[in-house]
């Protein structure tokens, strides 16, 4: 499987739209893209609606993003997570430290 990455601006914030799977193969590209976006923008939103699978490498990417955005005093949030992906954030306690909005139910 693959991960499709697409970004556009909406007012002040940059929206990163992902679709596909986040795993060891797709994570490095996502990490680079996301960290650059955080560097260049005050607010970054990652739309996860079309992400149907993520493993722990994906968590690593979002932890890096969290640390980077905190250091630079910027806003970083995740929106529209599918239930099985949200489960990972919940188990790992990351839902308490990462700004997560609008979890969608169901999956696939």
């Amino acid at each position: 499987m693959n991960l499709h990455i697409d970004d556009h601006n909406e007012g002040q914030s940059s929206i990163l739209k992902l679709s596909g799977e986040i795993d060891a193969y797709t994570a490095p590209r996502l990490k680079e893209h996301l960290l650059n976006l955080i560097e260049d923008n005050q607010e970054v939103q990652v739309d996860m609606q079309q992400v149907n699978y993520m493993d722990s490498t994906g968590l690593g990417v979002f932890i890096s993003a969290l640390k980077t955005s905190k250091e630079a005093n910027k806003t970083f949030k995740l929106v529209n997570l599918q239930e099985n992906v949200y489960r990972l954030f919940n188990i790992t306690g990351l839902n308490e430290v990462i700004d997560i909005e609008n979890t969608v139910r169901g999956g696939m």
């Binding site: 968590l59 932890i63 640390k67 790992t92 306690g93 990351l94 308490e96 430290v97």
Partner: peptide, 9 residues
């Protein structure tokens, strides 16, 4: 239980 991963914060 509930608790954050080690090494995040």
């Amino acid at each position: 239980g509930k608790g954050l991963l080690l090494g995040v914060q």
